[in-house]
């Protein structure tokens, strides 16, 4: 087999607005690769969140819908119920999914909506300028936690992959990260499996991705990448928290 890599066909030839080294760019590219590999461009419908990825539809060459902040899984539900044969994914940040949209994500998961959720956990509100997120680790300073996140008053970071894995209609819940080429390959595998889960009508799938935000982590892109492995995984352990193929098997 010849060695080669080409920009995926499902990725539009447009320079993104993301900061250098941003995990959103990698996630978009991987989604496009998976769509190409599964050959589902003509039946995939994506939900763009409110967050840095609000114009994800500018970059992915598929039908896409905007959702009000946090309602992304509810909009995805409406699309999937209308078109059960389509492949529907909801792309969400941690503010979108784990703060304002907590009710929507839990109930979509609990109903076992046959959709795929791609959850970009960068532990911060990127779009609005680096405020504290429900996933911000303890003691981390942000523009709205200038003294560091205080667990006494602000609680601990929300662990979404674990939380949703506790729901019986969830087929696949996994946490992966972007910290090295190998880790990014694992993200790609997780996305492939999550889409396959949906295409086999197994039910709700979520891929939580620890994703660098160099800008508001105030790290250069390479340090931010390594930070995912060094710091983020202390709070958010990687793992397959639910897998229909080996029910109950947690890593």
């Amino acid at each position: 087999m010849s060695i080669s890599y080409r920009r995926p066909g499902a990725l539009i030839d447009k320079v993104t607005h993301y900061c250098p080294g941003c995990g959103h760019g990698i996630a978009h590219r991987l989604i496009a690769e998976v769509i190409d590999e599964l050959d589902i461009r003509g039946r995939t419908i994506g939900m763009a969140p409110v967050g840095c990825a609000v114009v994800a539809y500018d970059y992915l060459d598929i039908d896409m819908c905007e959702a009000p902040h946090g309602r992304t899984p509810a909009v995805a539900t409406g699309v999937k119920r209308a078109l059960p044969e389509s492949v529907v994914f909801s792309y969400q940040g941690d503010g979108d999914l784990a703060a304002i949209g907590t009710a929507e994500i839990i109930h979509a998961a609990n109903r076992g909506e046959n959709i795929t959720v791609i959850f970009i956990n960068n532990a911060v509100y990127g779009m609005t300028g680096g405020q504290m997120a429900p996933t911000t680790p303890e003691k981390v300073k942000t523009t709205t936690s200038p003294y560091g996140r205080c667990t006494e008053t602000e609680g601990y970071p929300l662990k979404v992959a674990e939380l949703l894995a506790g729901l019986d209609r969830v087929a696949y819940s996994v946490r992966v990260m972007m910290a090295s080429p190998g880790d990014v390959r694992a993200v790609r595998e997780a996305l492939l499996k999550a889409f396959r889960c949906q295409m086999e009508r197994r039910g709700f799938s979520i891929v939580e991705i620890l994703s660098p935000c160099p800008t508001y982590w105030k790290l250069d892109p390479v340090e931010a990448f390594r930070h995912c492995a060094k710091e983020m995984t202390k709070v958010f352990p990687l793992g397959v928290y639910r897998d229909w193929e080996e029910t109950g098997a947690n890593q």
Binding site: I3, Y5, G25, R29, P181, V184, R188
Partner: peptide, 14 residues
């Protein structure tokens, strides 16, 4: 390099 590139800026061919 292609796997980590956030901007799909690298293409490689044989």
């Amino acid at each position: 390099c292609t796997v980590v590139c956030p901007d799909a800026a690298i293409e490689i061919c044989e």
